[in-house]
């Protein structure tokens, strides 16, 4: 019993993630971590590089503007780069204001959404 407890304490609820290349944002759920890097500018297409740990069976990225009740006019495509790393392309924030990145992870027969807000000017 003591041994199992120790293992549970040593293993973080969501495995730590790293993304090469400097500063990045992170989101955690009880089971997963997402680390991402993006530099969106209003009215310009941009890409998001991110890592998910542990690697899920499937992942999607979307974005949403809650106050305006709309998302983007574009559906990003996500390419797996291997090792739990991904690149999403085709995003565009067409308005300044409060947006949310929504990472949708599928793992173990379940789907979860990890959300992080950001302000774009």
């Amino acid at each position: 019993m003591r041994r199992w407890l120790a293992l549970a304490l040593l293993a973080p609820a969501a495995q730590a993630c790293e993304l090469p290349g400097g500063a990045a944002q992170s989101i955690r759920s009880p089971t997963h971590s997402v680390v991402y890097r993006a530099a969106p500018r209003v009215g310009e297409h941009f890409a998001v590089e991110f890592a998910v740990c542990p690697a899920p069976e499937g992942v999607q990225l979307d974005a949403w503007m809650p106050a305006h009740r709309h998302g983007m006019n574009y559906a990003p495509s996500v390419t797996a780069l291997g090792g739990g790393r991904y690149r999403a392309e085709g995003l565009l924030f067409h308005m300044p204001g409060e947006w949310e990145f929504v990472f949708v992870l599928r793992a173990g027969g379940a789907t979860q959404r990890l959300v992080r807000g950001l302000r774009v000017e």
């Binding site: 006019n73 574009y74 559906a75 495509s77 392309e89 085709g90």
Partner: peptide, 12 residues
Amino acid sequence: ATGTTHVTLEHR
């Protein structure tokens, strides 16, 4: 062509 590739069609 990024926009052409990714643009979505919605009822709205």
